[in-house]
């Protein structure tokens, strides 16, 4: 089984004795929780280190900040994570990705794992179709790259194959059933590694944010854009895609169809315009270096020429 924090029903947050509790939320969620009987905070900078419980409701970035704050500043604080969107799986993983002036810093350790995670299904309904699609791309990337990773063992691959089957059965929409497989995928990849999709996303995200500051370029959008081309690359350049999908009873071509539906050629063109300048950094990224198929300097041409089409 994939390691994951204890799971609570959403109502338990209000019914349990959480002691001195603060609610840390993103702006999109705040109006839904103003009447909750807790202290409210808008950033980790406002948190009291003597807290008994911190409940964080937000996206991956805010949850990771809360995980880092708890680990480094208040290790006795009980941490409850409620994702406002799926994809990052931050609520279920011992990994944190911190942004230092555009540079991504990744830390892994059990001290970062929340004590409890819970799903608030209604938050899914507030997502736009575009947000939902990008979040699905993020979730698919974690599951596929974790499954294909050269560092994955047999039992992890079995678990992630089951997650992939679930994902394949879900519609690409704001459906709250995505929260569970997304959390499982993230917990799984933390036990192996991710690959080139994440190497590209980590490298290009600061570039895209700086170049198009008002166009919503973030991690999930880059994952949705590149997961299909990268899996086609893995399929074309090595035998791991074919052998592992077959070995674990997965329908590789149906999965490629699913992730192709997440691909937007306009987004790809826009991102690829920055790829040549970023490629050396992509090659050096730790995620790229554990891709299931070797990524070489000349692999750039495969992506530039759109050989996956």
């Amino acid at each position: 089984m994939l390691n994951s924090p204890e799971i609570w029903d959403f109502g338990e947050i209000l019914n349990r004795n959480l002691g001195n509790c603060t609610l840390l939320t993103t702006p999109s969620v705040r109006s839904r929780v103003t009447d909750w009987p807790f202290n409210h905070a808008t950033s980790v900078g406002h948190l009291d280190e003597r807290l008994d419980t911190l409940v964080v409701i937000g996206g991956g970035t805010l949850i990771d900040e809360a995980k880092a704050w708890r680990a480094h500043r208040a290790p006795r604080t009980f941490l409850v994570a409620v994702p406002s969107i799926w994809g990052s799986g931050a609520e279920a993983s011992p990994v944190i990705v911190l942004d230092h002036n555009g540079a991504k810093e990744i830390h892994i350790g059990n001290q970062y794992l929340p004590d409890v995670r819970c799903v608030w299904p209604e938050l899914a309904s507030s997502l736009s179709p575009e947000q939902a699609l990008y979040a699905c791309g993020d979730a698919w990337s974690h599951a596929l790259e974790g499954f294909l990773s050269p560092l994955a063992g047999h039992s992890l691959r079995e678990d992630l194959a089951s997650v992939l089957v679930t994902m394949k059965s879900l519609p690409v929409s704001n459906d709250s059933r995505w929260f569970e497989p997304s959390a499982a995928a993230c917990a799984g990849q933390a036990r192996s590694s991710v690959g080139l999709v994440h190497g590209i996303a980590h490298t290009l995200e600061p570039v895209m944010r700086a170049s198009y500051p008002r166009e919503g370029w973030g991690h999930a959008r880059l994952c949705a854009t590149f997961v299909w081309p990268v899996m086609r690359y893995n399929q074309a350049r090595g035998d791991r895609w074919t052998s592992l999908t077959s070995q674990y009873g997965l329908d590789g071509s149906a999965m490629l169809d699913c992730i192709e539906s997440l691909h937007d050629s306009g987004n790809y063109e826009t991102a690829m315009a920055h790829m040549e300048g970023a490629w050396k950094e992509v090659l050096r990224d730790p995620c790229t270096r554990t891709n299931s198929t070797l990524v070489r300097p000349d692999s750039l041409a495969w992506f530039m020429n759109r050989a996956f089409l």
Binding site: P150, L151, R237, G238, P286, R289, T290, N291, T293, L294
Partner: peptide, 12 residues
């Protein structure tokens, strides 16, 4: 990480 990549590359 290079050790992992070398193992993948040698296999390929």
């Amino acid at each position: 990480l290079a050790v992992v990549a070398i193992a993948v590359g040698v296999d390929e």
